Amino acid sequence: MFLKGKKAIGALTAAVAVAATLTFGVPSPAFAIDHVECVGGENFLKIYSHLDGRQSVDCYANAGRTDFGGWWVDRIVTGNNDLVYYDANGDSVRIDRWHDISFPNHPPKIASIEIL
């Protein structure tokens, strides 16, 4: 009886080891948007914005979603990225790659952005 119990524990241990190997050993796609340094010639997402008298130009790479802090956006250059921005009113707007859009009169106030 004791021997059967040891075999069952051994089999369970082996099954857990195989599951852990499959879980941690198989690479999966990374979905982590990165705030990166704006570099000329790169095709990053580039967003020109302002808030409370401050101006900002921010670049992003890689798929994922991040908070944008409610800044007013003056211009978006998508580069090679498909973008969805979520404005402060709860609307979402998709902009396909290779677009350069300016908002001279009514800039959107952006809550978050997502690179697809």
Score class of each variant (00 low, 15 high):
residue 59 C to Y: 03
residue 7 K to G: 01
residue 47 I to G: 00
residue 111 A to I: 02
residue 68 F to K: 04
residue 90 G to S: 10
residue 94 R to W: 02
residue 74 D to N: 14
residue 85 Y to D: 07
residue 42 E to P: 00
residue 44 F to W: 03
residue 9 I to N: 06
residue 38 C to R: 08
residue 93 V to T: 15
residue 61 A to L: 11
residue 16 V to T: 13
residue 56 S to P: 00
residue 60 Y to Q: 02
residue 109 K to G: 11
residue 25 G to V: 11
residue 35 H to A: 12
residue 62 N to H: 12
residue 82 D to S: 13
residue 79 G to L: 03
residue 54 R to Y: 09
residue 92 S to R: 14
residue 87 D to E: 07
residue 103 F to A: 09
residue 16 V to C: 14
residue 116 L to Q: 14
residue 31 F to N: 11
residue 59 C to E: 01
residue 104 P to F: 04
residue 43 N to P: 05
residue 102 S to C: 07
residue 31 F to Q: 08
residue 6 K to A: 12
residue 114 E to F: 05
residue 12 L to M: 14
residue 92 S to Y: 04
residue 51 L to W: 01
residue 109 K to S: 14
residue 66 T to L: 10
residue 34 D to M: 11
residue 15 A to K: 03
residue 1 M to V: 12
residue 50 H to D: 12
residue 52 D to W: 04
residue 12 L to Y: 04
residue 1 M to C: 09
residue 27 P to A: 10
residue 66 T to K: 03
residue 21 T to A: 14
residue 101 I to A: 07
residue 31 F to P: 00
residue 28 S to R: 14
residue 17 A to T: 15
residue 24 F to W: 08
residue 45 L to H: 04
residue 92 S to C: 02
residue 102 S to V: 07
residue 111 A to H: 00
residue 4 K to F: 08
residue 36 V to I: 12
residue 30 A to W: 00
residue 2 F to S: 08
residue 67 D to S: 14
residue 101 I to T: 13
residue 107 P to D: 06
residue 102 S to Y: 09
residue 70 G to F: 01
residue 8 A to M: 12
residue 24 F to Q: 00
residue 32 A to R: 05
residue 11 A to L: 15
residue 22 L to N: 06
residue 13 T to M: 13
residue 53 G to L: 12
residue 45 L to Y: 08
residue 87 D to G: 05
residue 34 D to S: 14
residue 96 D to H: 06
residue 65 R to L: 11
residue 87 D to S: 07
residue 15 A to H: 02
residue 12 L to Q: 04
residue 37 E to Q: 07
residue 84 V to C: 03
residue 32 A to H: 08
residue 116 L to S: 12
residue 70 G to S: 05
residue 70 G to Y: 00
residue 39 V to H: 05
residue 9 I to T: 08
residue 32 A to E: 10
residue 25 G to E: 04
residue 15 A to C: 15
residue 53 G to C: 12
residue 107 P to C: 07
residue 85 Y to E: 09
residue 5 G to I: 13
residue 32 A to T: 12
residue 12 L to C: 13
residue 81 N to V: 03
residue 67 D to H: 09
residue 36 V to F: 02
residue 71 W to Y: 04
residue 85 Y to S: 09
residue 105 N to C: 10
residue 116 L to F: 13
residue 114 E to Q: 15
residue 96 D to Q: 08
residue 99 H to R: 14
residue 85 Y to L: 10
residue 115 I to Y: 11
residue 30 A to N: 07
residue 28 S to C: 02
residue 64 G to T: 05
residue 43 N to E: 10
residue 100 D to I: 00
residue 94 R to L: 04
residue 30 A to H: 03
residue 95 I to T: 06
residue 52 D to F: 06
residue 102 S to T: 15
residue 9 I to Y: 07
residue 2 F to G: 15
residue 66 T to G: 05
residue 41 G to H: 12
residue 62 N to Q: 13
residue 81 N to P: 01
residue 112 S to D: 08
residue 67 D to V: 10
residue 26 V to L: 15
residue 1 M to K: 11
residue 58 D to V: 03
residue 56 S to V: 01
residue 81 N to C: 14
residue 38 C to Q: 08
residue 67 D to W: 09
residue 28 S to L: 10
residue 111 A to P: 00
residue 37 E to T: 13
residue 32 A to V: 12
residue 105 N to D: 15
residue 39 V to T: 14
residue 20 A to M: 15
residue 12 L to A: 15
residue 90 G to K: 10
